[in-house]
């Protein structure tokens, strides 16, 4: 069970969270102006990355806030968590995310 650091409540067990899919996919301001292909891209196309992945989680059984997580999909290491609207922390140097899983478990 992952230990996820909610930006509001601190580290909490995964059971308190719900997953919200890939992060940083903003709803187009004016959907009508998008052609079908662009709209389909927004609706359906996701990166499915191996390695570092920015994703949304919600502390549904806690403060109920959505927030963003950078997680390594290979090791499950959580590199950073940050509030909605905040810029993701600088991309982590290659290799660093592997080691940082040790901090991912920090209570």
């Amino acid at each position: 069970m992952l230990l996820i650091k909610c930006p509001f409540c601190g580290p909490r067990p995964e059971l308190e969270f719900s997953y919200g899919g890939q992060a940083h996919i903003a709803r187009p301001k004016d959907p009508a102006s998008l052609d079908d292909e662009a709209w389909a891209e927004y609706l359906y196309i996701r990166s499915n990355s191996k390695g570092l992945h920015a994703e949304r989680w919600r502390h549904i059984h806690g403060c109920a806030r959505f927030f963003n997580v950078q997680r390594n999909t290979v090791s499950d290491a959580i590199v950073s968590t940050y509030k909605i609207g905040e810029e993701p922390p600088k991309p982590v140097e290659p290799g660093l995310e592997e080691r940082s899983s040790r901090s991912g478990a920090a209570l």
Binding site: C9, R12, L15, E16, H61, G62, C63, A64
Partner: peptide
Amino acid sequence: CTRTILGKSP
């Protein structure tokens, strides 16, 4: 205080 879960209940 906090919202959390107990078994299968919030």
